[in-house]
Amino acid sequence: DNLVIALHSYEPSHDGDLGFEKGEQLRILEQSGEWWKAQSLTTGQEGFIPFNFVAKA
C-alpha cells in the first residue's frame, strides 16, 4: 500500500495543503513533483504534502 510516516510535523501554508504531526501515517493518493496528494489515516482529511517530510512506512 502507499503508506508513509511523517518525519516532521507540517503546518499548511496554502489552501489545499494537508497539515500533519510527526509520526502520523498517511496514504499517498498521487505522486507528482515535490507535492504529493495524501490522506491522513488519523483525520481522514486529504490534501497536498511536501514529499520530503515523509518516508515509506
Rank of each mutant, 00 (worst) to 15 (best):
F51S: 15
V54M: 04
I49S: 00
E34Y: 15
G47L: 04
S9W: 06
G16H: 15
L7N: 04
S32H: 13
A55P: 03
G47E: 01
F51Q: 11
L26V: 02
S32F: 13
E46D: 06
E21N: 10
W35A: 05
G23V: 01
D15P: 15
E34S: 13
E34Q: 13
E21R: 14
E11S: 14
E46F: 13
I5P: 00
A38L: 07
D15F: 12
A57Y: 14
S40D: 01
W36C: 10
Q39R: 12
S32W: 12
T43G: 03
A57N: 10
F53R: 05
Q39V: 13
E46V: 15
F20P: 00
W36L: 09
F48K: 08
G19D: 01
F51W: 14
A57C: 14
F53G: 03
S40C: 06
G23S: 02
D1W: 14
N52R: 11
E11F: 14
P12C: 05
A6R: 01
T42R: 15
N2P: 06
D17E: 15
E46I: 15
A57R: 08
F20E: 01
H14G: 12
S13I: 15
L26R: 00
L3D: 04
K22C: 09
L3A: 03
R27L: 14
G33W: 04
S40E: 00
D17M: 14
Q31T: 11
W36M: 07
L18F: 06
S32G: 11
L3Q: 05
F53H: 07
K56S: 12
R27W: 11
N52E: 11
N2M: 14
T42C: 10
L26S: 00
F48H: 06
Y10R: 08
H8T: 10
E24P: 00
W35H: 07
F48P: 00
G33E: 03
W35D: 01
S9D: 10
S13F: 11
S13P: 06
R27D: 01
Q31K: 13
N2D: 11
F20R: 00
Q25I: 15
A38R: 02
G23A: 03
R27Q: 06
E21W: 08
Q31F: 13
Y10D: 00
A38W: 04
E21H: 13
H14M: 10
G44M: 09
S32N: 14
S40A: 05
S9V: 05
